[in-house]
Amino acid sequence: MIEFLTALGQHEFLQRMVICALLASVSCGVVGSFVVVRRISYLAGSIAHCVLAGMGAAGYLNKVHGVNITPMVGAVVAALVAALIIGLVSLRAKEREDTVIGAVWAIGMAVGFLFIHKTPGYNQDLMSYLFGSITLVGMSDIVLLAVLDLVVVVTVLLFFNPLVAVCFDEEFARLRGIHVEFWYLLLLCLAALTVVLLVSVVGIVLVIALLTLPVAIASQFSRKLLTIMILATVVTATLTLGGIVVSYRPGWPASATIITLAGSVYLIVLMLKRLIRARPSA
């Protein structure tokens, strides 16, 4: 721990990592709670994988055509586009929803893979996009991520009531004159921005666990949405920072360590809860 703190003072990449983790924690707790209670983690998963298309395209434009664009900017654009496509499919299309969303998931990855294939030195990039790497996030990106975080949290706090109404009882919300489509698409866009924040910490493939597990842990302790959001934020911050610290010394990949830690904590919490509940009746 002391060793880590010393290193943190010396290495700029560790500082960036910690800042990313803290920023991501806030919107992860807030938006992740909505994603979990509205049961749209599959949609969020699909959005996350479409991010590869944006990162791949940004990397390609940058390296091959010299356009000044970072993978994180590409990620933001791709995530928002994916959120709108998936949202409209989920609201309007007569097709089976899961079929289309599964397809969007894979097509996003395929497009990303094609761009990366056309970009020199693609192997290394692909791995860091998929499983996370702090090399993706430059200091300029930190500003972008901070702005995203602020947008997400302020939006949710201001429009908490209509968002809850649309998530809990869509039909009733519609009857009250609430524009259900608008709020649903907004929620997906917030999820998309949150996904980008999380990709900066753990990469595309592992995002979905970090979006849902802290909320799953938090909802073991509260049945109030606002409390769950706050708890989930604290849990995400603890898990991501914990993962970074634990992985530092042995040189493990931080993203995989964070997710494994999150999964373990979730299982332990479930088991402890069962033990505590079983005791009085025994």
Binding site: V37, N161, F168, D169, F172, R176, I178, K224, I228
Partner: peptide, 24 residues
């Protein structure tokens, strides 16, 4: 959804929402 984390009062309050944009 039986698992949705919402209080009894919160459920009733949904009936007070209108199409007008209410902030906070």
């Amino acid at each position: 959804d039986r698992q949705f984390p919402v209080s009894v009062l919160d459920v009733v309050l949904l009936g007070r929402l209108t199409g007008r944009l209410a902030i906070g």
